[in-house]
Computed example of a mutant assay.
Amino acid sequence: MPIMSKNQKYLVMLALLAGAAPAAVVAQDQAQDAPPADVSASVAMPAAELTEGPEIKGIISARSGDRMQVTAADGSKSVITINDDTKISASKGLFGLGRDHLAATSLLNGLPVTVKTLQAGEGLLASKIALQNKDLKTASMINNGTAQRFDEQTAATEALRGRMGEIDQYNVKGTTNVNFDTGKAVLSDQAKNDLCAAATSANGMSNALLLVVGYTDSTGGEELNQELSEKRASRVVNYLQQACGWKPYRMLTPTGMAEADPVASNDTVEGKAQNRRVAVNILVSKAVDGL
C-alpha cells in the first residue's frame, strides 16, 4: 500500500473539492427542519391554465414518477412535473455542442440542472431542462449498477452527509492501486480481488468514504490520456458497486488525472506499468474520525 506524496494528497483534495460542493448543498438542505417535499403524486395541469414560470437552477434531490425535486444553492426546494413535452438537453464544451431529446431517465439524483417552467396555480411543469454532459457522465457513473431503492438511498445519504456537509478535511486511511495494460481499461483478476479487499477494509471503518482517481503513463496525447484515466476510474467504480457491494452514497465523485503525479519514472517500462493505475483512497473526515 504506497504512501501518498504531498502532490498526490493535493490532487486528492482538488478532486474532493470538485465533488464536495454539490454534496454540501444537498447536506445543508437536508439539515433543515422542514419536512421534504412530497414528490410521490402526479398533478394534472390543464394547458389552458399554464403561464410562464420561474427559471430554476439547482441539484435534483429527489425523483418519483413524473416529478422531481430541485434544491437550489440557497436551500430552497421546488417540486416540478415532467411530461412528454418536456425537452431535456445536454450541452457539451465551450460552444454548447451537445444532444437534445434525452430521456427522463437521464435525470439522476445529484445532477445539476437548469429548468425553464410553466406554472398552473402553485404547480410547476418543466418545459425545458438543460444539463451538462460532464455532469450527466459523473451522475451516471455513480448511479450505475445499483438496484437500491431511492428512498433507502436517501435515508442513508441524509444520515451520512448530514454529518459531513460542512467538512472539507479528511484523513487518508489507506490507498489501493490497481494497474492496467497500455491503452486498456480492463480489470485483471488480481485487480478485482484487490478492489473487493479494499471495499471490505473500508466497510470495517466507521464513516469511511472511497475516492477513486484514474491515471495513465506518458504514452499517448493529453486528450486521449484524460479520457482513458476517466474510463479506468469509471470501470473501478462500477466494479466496486456491482461486485464488491460498495454503496454509491459512500463514494465521492471519481475523477481522471491523466498522467499527473506518477508514482514511478515514465522513462522505463516498469515505471510506466506502475503509473497505469487507479488509486482507491479510503477517506474519513477528521471531524468524525474515531467516532
Rank of each mutant, 00 (worst) to 15 (best):
M1Q: 15
P2Y: 10
S5Y: 08
N7L: 12
Q8N: 07
V12A: 12
L14F: 06
L16T: 07
A20F: 04
V25C: 06
V26A: 10
V26C: 05
V26Y: 00
Q30W: 09
A31T: 04
Q32R: 11
A34Q: 12
A34V: 11
P36E: 02
A37W: 01
S40Y: 00
S40K: 10
A41T: 01
A41V: 06
A48F: 11
A48V: 11
L50T: 10
G58S: 03
G58P: 01
G58Q: 00
A62M: 06
S64P: 01
Q69H: 05
T71F: 00
A73T: 02
S78V: 03
T81R: 01
D84I: 01
A90V: 11
F95D: 11
G98M: 07
H101E: 09
H101N: 13
A103K: 13
A104K: 09
L107Y: 00
T114P: 04
T117Q: 02
T117S: 04
Q119S: 08
G121Y: 00
D135C: 02
D135G: 08
I142S: 07
N144P: 01
G145F: 01
D151G: 12
D151V: 15
E152K: 09
T154D: 12
A155N: 02
A155R: 13
A155T: 14
A156I: 07
G162S: 05
R163D: 01
I167T: 10
Y170D: 02
N171Q: 09
N177H: 10
N179Q: 13
K184D: 14
A185N: 08
A185T: 00
L187E: 08
D189F: 06
D189T: 13
Q190N: 13
A191T: 05
N193Y: 04
D194S: 14
D194P: 08
A197V: 06
T200S: 14
S201A: 15
N203D: 13
G204F: 02
M205Y: 03
A208L: 05
V213F: 01
Y215D: 08
Y215M: 04
D217L: 08
D217R: 00
E222P: 08
L224Q: 15
L224P: 09
L224F: 15
S229R: 06
R232Y: 04
R235L: 14
R235S: 15
V236Y: 11
L240P: 06
G245L: 09
K247P: 08
P248K: 11
P248L: 09
R250Y: 11
P254C: 12
T255A: 15
G256S: 07
A258M: 03
D261C: 13
P262C: 07
A264E: 13
D267G: 12
G271M: 08
R277P: 05
V278G: 04
V278T: 09
V278M: 07
L283V: 12
V284I: 11
V284M: 06
S285D: 05
A287T: 13
